[in-house]
Design a protein around this nucleic acid. Structure first.
Lengths: 254, 254
DNA sequence: ATCAATTCCCGTAGGGTATACGAGAATTCA
DNA sequence: TGAATTCTCGTATACCCTACGGGAATTGAT
């Protein structure tokens, strides 16, 4: 992947694209409206096609050329809608972020704050499961679009009732998103490998005889050996995920 | 980034490269030794050059062509040392992983388990600070090399004394690495953006007037607005990082 | 000394990527 | 009808990774 350089060029253009389906800045009265050729696509067409292609055939299939073919236009036509592939990826990410179904302000939600966090957790994990390519994109610091802000807003609203200080509330929300997002990404990556190699993660591990037989040095890894002999590697990914999240929530709960 | 397909091809070759400076499998007696042209480089030369180039000029500079030029050889020469760029990246990652200074089995370490975790935390964060490109590579499921195993081993050895069940010990270690690695990666990514744009993260945010003035909708983000008015966004990245880690450790501690 | 076997070196070529440029087509308004 | 505007997209450039295969270097055996 090339460097991510959000913040270069015209950030206004990026923001305008991210928020294209929400409030719009007042139109520039200088510009004549109505003239010019009619566009054959919309930005959403391009974004949706990118998501679909990446879902079905992998992120590499969502190249500008492949995307153009899918849409039945010339490659360069896409650049009328999106300034670069970079920005298109940003738009794709925020689109799937915004599709998470999180209760908005005033909408009903469970009484228990942990169950409310669980909603965020489930929605985020499902998002990664349905869009495995997310694990190949830098989701950790996503563009500041409606999807990211909705997620932040929801988690903050959940934690506000806990009675923490404002700063603690914010950092607690950050800690939760950090853990949930990256653990979900890890799961998705694992699925991606399974799909690519056709064998499950467990099968892959047990097939790597060479590692344990010729390379692994018991003397240098006594703790791993202890855990191994005590059958400590039996937990499912799901169990591991929830264990970590619950311990984090335990620590946050006043 | 192209798809990561660890587990394809000859995994033995990959493992042999990752563990090249450790135990070696018994040499194949079939092969004549000694014949043939002498190599002008070593695998470590290539890996080190890749790390240096990525450190100094960004991950994109560490292309096979640029790397060859740096080493004064033809591009294709590199392929006698490394099967593909993919594998080279794996080797680079495990190399910086293994350079973390973590107390090995039997070596002295602090009495308090939290301080022992802090060693892992500090070393990992410093690793990301010195090799910002790590945040652009998929470190979450790194190749099974000596560096990754040393990190796992250390964390497990720390947690073994807590009296958790073997499974809990393992999942707790996973949770900690998940949090630490991804939070450190997030920090590095932020630094990368600062370096690229020449302005600090804070400056970037406050310069995005458009976001708050024209796009941000207070009614849809009451919690964010509350936190904002209560000055809840004042914490430094460092504070936020430690808050999250400490809450996780609180939850883990029996 | 010669030769075969082996190993490394690397130029060429092919197929992939993103995108700058600019000419042409379509549309609207004056 | 003509000017202004906007979208379309072919061509060309500049990268990227890497398959292939011939040549160079080195060794041990003859």
């Amino acid at each position: 992947m090339s460097e991510r350089r959000s913040g270069e060029g015209q950030p206004d253009r990026t923001l305008a694209l991210l928020w294209r389906n929400h409030r719009q800045p007042p139109a520039d009265p200088q510009r004549k409206r109505g003239a010019g050729r009619r566009p054959s696509l919309t930005v959403d067409d391009v974004v949706q096609a990118g998501i679909r292609l990446a879902d079905e055939q992998g992120l590499a299939a969502a190249s500008m050329g492949g995307l153009a073919k899918e849409l039945g236009v010339g490659t360069m036509t896409l650049y009328t809608y999106v300034p670069s592939k970079e920005e298109l990826l940003d738009l794709m990410v925020d689109q799937v972020l915004v599709e998470r179904r999180l209760p908005g302000p005033g909408e009903p939600r469970p009484a228990d704050w942990r169950e409310q966090v669980e909603i965020y957790s489930v929605q985020t994990r499902e998002m990664f499961q349905q869009h495995l390519w997310l694990s190949q994109v830098s989701t950790i610091r996503p563009p500041v679009g409606p999807g990211m802000l909705a997620g932040r807003e929801y988690l903050l609203s959940v934690l506000l009732d806990l009675g923490l200080t404002p700063t603690e509330t914010n950092t607690a929300a950050l800690a939760i998103t950090t853990y949930v997002d990256s653990a979900a990404s890890l799961e998705a990556e694992s699925l991606l490998v399974e799909r690519a190699t056709g064998q499950t993660n467990n099968a892959w591990w047990s097939e790597r005889n060479d590692l344990w037989e010729t390379y692994f040095d018991v003397d240098r890894h006594p703790a791993m050996t202890t855990i191994w002999h005590a059958n400590g590697y039996q937990s499912t990914p799901d169990d591991a995920y929830h264990y970590g999240l619950n311990r984090l929530l335990d620590g946050i709960q006043p």
